[in-house]
Design a protein around this nucleic acid. Structure first.
Lengths: 380, 380
DNA sequence: CAAGTTTTGGCAACCGGTTGACAAACTTTC
DNA sequence: GAAAGTTTGTCAACCGGTTGCCAAAACTTG
């Protein structure tokens, strides 16, 4: 092995020159082989039923023989269709997006669409750049937790179909996980454990979801007659959570919700480092149930988001706009996107699931995952 | 807010119809505005120096005014260039790929290339499908830890430029993290802690990197006169690690290397569940230093991979093939790809870093991260 | 100032599909 | 068997750039 395994220390020498010309077959080649006109080939390959079964077969055989593959650029030129959709996430390294990405990717692949991925690194500006760049190439775009302003999103939506994940903007399709159910469970649990004063460590200011989670918690705390305060917002990262530790420690709350698991983990570890024992002295609750949230000691209690479903559903919804007739992916349903409508009416909370009891809705609801980071309130 | 914030419970009603026709400007529009021929516009925009400064300016102004954007499909049709590169990873949800993906994504974006992402879900077949699909669309492809056979990779490489990450195949460019340095440190550390019998929990059989890690460990164990055994391979996931627990527990080894952190975490948690205390009764060492590997109790000792750099370097190298003249990203260097040449010669290990002491090499070397999961050997 | 050289811009073909219009071929109907 | 209707295939234009070739224009040089 040692001598055949050439290293490429001498760059470009051992490396086989890529891109051997070998142009692939075109519809003209097929046409010649099948003895028909190129346009007939085009129709046979795209418009089903437009050509007779006999010629259809001849053409298919010829295509097979030449192992033809459409040139998507040639197709895209006149039609604008690219068989590609974009997904922009705010932070690729945030595990919460893994499952969204995977969900979207597999859903796309199964429908013969390709996924383009970009990240905005939590910056509205980067996000706009990425979106603009993608817009030229894709048939539609999914924006997961975008940081853009409403108007910017509407502007994008005017050009190509857009589906939002965990964000709601007038006139733009969106898939939102229903926070209410999970939050209701969580607050009920904390109330039962004797907590009366709660705090919320918010995420980025431009995060719609952070505001929404706050509202849900507020509504439920009011319901239970508990006190709720908000800690200054920060980056939705482990580091962001750490930064919030000082304020939380000095506060009077005995339980704290963090905007997401990353922050919850950061907060917990920072506090533990400062000698606070979790959950004895403070209960911590995250959101999302990301990879690794059960690795900590104590493992994190969290409100699980249907991340994978969010990705799958967003993609299906997007494809609905792009290919109106298509119904392949039955997973999603318009009802699912309606979950969690009223953001301020606490009365609606408990009913959200009930009134539109479809499988899709259930899939997009959140759920309390009780682990070790929450417990009984410390005596006041 | 409540009444203006329309939900899309009635699908397609509140949603603004996307894709308003508004076709964007073409070079013909520019040509008309600037009073020149379309071909001149094309040249002004791509071939620098081919047109006079005066017309160049006129054209640029006109383009600006119409806020022109090339139609990449029209461009791709005659040239084949798409300004897009592909990245295929074996598992999107494996945190080890996060940083690789991000590295590649940012490097691509900074050079005005767009990244397409796909995953193979650890299956050679899926990988081939994804690769084939992408090949039609991209200028080049990065395969991170591919599961494909060498011949299949060579076959792909014959069509478009390909760069491999953590895999070496004759005649194909590759970027490989130098396992030796980290492994040498790690084994030396374990030896110093009194361990004499070590075990390796291997990853997937088709994983080149798993074999490579095994060889590095073997070489160093031989050097230190330690016993090394291999535990049957499994999926490179937390679950895969759990599955290996039984065999490891019954073995005589006092320290175990796992193919990656995911497996190490799974193994550790499963063993702990069975009452084994880490590191008192068994030392566990992972590979990669993924997100979350420090969340566990005890935090995982691991051999850190330069994941981000791997992504950046792979992309730069790929672009070198695609745009031969281009030298924008100085980050990478051909020397970097040569690191870790001899896979079997133990003597070479210590020297690898020394003999080619460039910054690029350093960036791609691995490094021991000592945390709590490793400690002194239990008395035999 | 003429001859030679270098720039610069225009023409037209081409990349590989799609699609509207139309005619030829085939069916159906009376 | 002719008229009317329906399929099916062909023609040709088009999507929006790129590029080889050539001639006109501009610049050198003697």
């Amino acid at each position: 092995m040692t001598d055949t395994n050439q290293t490429d220390a001498v760059p470009g020498r051992a490396i086989t020159t890529p891109r051997s010309g070998k142009a692939s077959a075109t519809i003209y080649d097929i046409a010649a082989l099948a003895g028909v006109n190129p346009s007939t080939v085009s129709r046979a390959l795209s418009k089903p039923g437009r050509v007779s079964a006999k010629t259809q077969q001849k053409i298919l055989d010829a295509a097979e023989e030449l192992n033809y593959q459409v040139n998507i650029f040639a197709r895209a030129l006149p039609t604008g269709r690219t068989q590609t959709v974009g997904l922009i996430v705010s932070d690729i390294t945030n595990p919460a997006f893994f499952d969204i990405i995977r969900g979207a990717e597999t859903a796309a692949a199964s429908r013969d669409y390709t996924l383009m991925l970009a990240e905005s690194t939590e910056s509205a500006e980067h996000e706009m750049t990425a979106a603009k760049r993608m817009l030229a190439t894709v048939d539609g775009l999914i924006l997961a937790s975008p940081r853009l302003a409403n108007e910017e999103i509407q502007e994008l939506a005017a050009k190509k179909p857009i589906v939002l994940i965990n964000r709601r903007v007038d006139g733009v399709a969106s898939i939102v996980a229903d926070t209410e159910t999970g939050v209701a469970e969580a607050v009920r649990h904390l109330a039962a454990q004797g907590h009366t004063s709660i705090s919320y460590v918010a995420g980025p200011e431009r995060s719609w979801m952070s505001a929404r989670r706050w509202e849900s918690i507020k509504a439920r705390c009011d319901w239970h007659g508990m006190k709720l305060s908000q800690v200054a917002s920060g980056m939705p990262t482990v580091e962001g959570g750490r930064r919030a530790a000082a304020v939380v420690k000095d506060g009077e709350a005995t339980a704290v919700f963090c905007y997401n698991d990353l922050m919850a983990i950061g907060l917990m570890r920072e506090l533990q480092g400062a000698g606070v024992s979790i959950p004895e002295q403070l209960s911590i609750m995250g959101f999302d149930n990301i990879f690794g949230s059960d690795f900590t000691t104590p493992p994190l209690s969290t409100i699980k988001s249907p991340l994978h479903e969010l990705g799958v559903t967003a993609l299906s919804r997007l494809l609905e706009f792009i290919v109106p007739g298509d119904q392949a992916g039955v997973v999603e349903s318009s009802a699912g996107t309606a979950a969690g409508a009223g953001t301020t009416a606490p009365g609606a909370v408990g009913q959200a699931g009930a009134e539109a009891g479809g499988a899709a809705v259930a899939a997009l609801s959140t759920e309390l995952v009780l682990r070790g980071s929450t417990g009984a309130a410390r005596p006041a």
